[in-house]
Design a protein around this nucleic acid. Structure first.
Lengths: 140, 140
DNA sequence: CATAATACTTGCATTTTGCAAGTAGGATAA
DNA sequence: TTATCCTACTTGCAAAATGCAAGTATTATG
């Protein structure tokens, strides 16, 4: 596995987060893994925002190096790789939920279903547990 | 005031957030306003990460157009502008706190004081109230 | 009236991103 | 066994974003 020897502009936590997943695409890949059950390269490639294939390959590698996801050969289809979130990746869930709540409040065309927002505001902890359960067992 | 007629790649809430403040610098400006009491152009310019002046000017304008902050002439010093968060900007606080918690957990050189982390995990609501109180009255 | 302070703008080099086409290895079918 | 397809990339080049240094404009300050 590649070593992560990155130098940070600062160790401010906001900056650390920004440098880890603050580019134009990383969080969308994590979203696909976290909320949409995607796990294959081709699935990420087909998301609505149309990431280009070289950028996808680059971001998957960066996220792997930074320990947010793992890559492994698919047992059932030996020509595919399976990507999965690590605990470090799953731990972004609370932040992503706050992000979703904010966007739902301020984007008047938000794609977030009203029922999701309701659970998010009224019942956040059980929503988190349910989402994590849906991710199955994690890889380190 | 300039009109915001941006077209979004999608109305996925994660993508909406990304397109609003997901570049390399915007969240650092919001951090300076939210946690460090900064309000002048020169103060943002002097933050640890060393944003360059043209980028700062560009980001301040974008954030103003997107309604996250306001710009006004300083009453006490007519050669300075005062930047302040709007409600829309302040509403990013819960997300930023989750981001800080995540970075503090995974950056072993994190700059976040232990006492802040403790309050964040044990007493989040009161921490939020205190931080908002510290921001003073907001502009629309 | 000259100098300084603050907030920018401009020009250009470097880096990052985007698009289209090409390649490589395993699965499938003849 | 060969050909075709599927999946996951890589490569080359154009376009856009960022970074750096210098310049300008407006408002204090002496």
């Amino acid at each position: 596995m590649k070593r992560n020897t990155k130098k940070y502009r600062s160790h401010c936590p906001i900056n650390f987060a920004q440098e880890t997943f603050g580019d134009k695409w990383s969080l969308l890949i994590i979203r696909d893994l976290m909320f949409k059950g995607k796990k294959y390269y081709g699935e990420f490639l087909n998301s609505d925002e149309k990431i280009s294939t070289n950028i996808l390959a680059d971001r998957l590698e960066k996220l792997e190096v930074d320990g947010l996801l793992t890559k492994a050969r698919d047992k059932e289809n030996n020509s595919k790789n399976i990507y999965a979130l690590t605990q470090k990746g799953v731990d972004l869930l609370p932040m992503l939920l706050e992000m979703i709540a904010w966007s739902a409040k301020y984007d008047n065309k938000t794609g977030t279903p009203a029922e999701f927002i309701r659970r998010l505001t009224e019942d956040k902890d059980s929503l988190i547990r349910e989402l994590i359960a849906g991710l199955g067992s994690l890889k380190t």
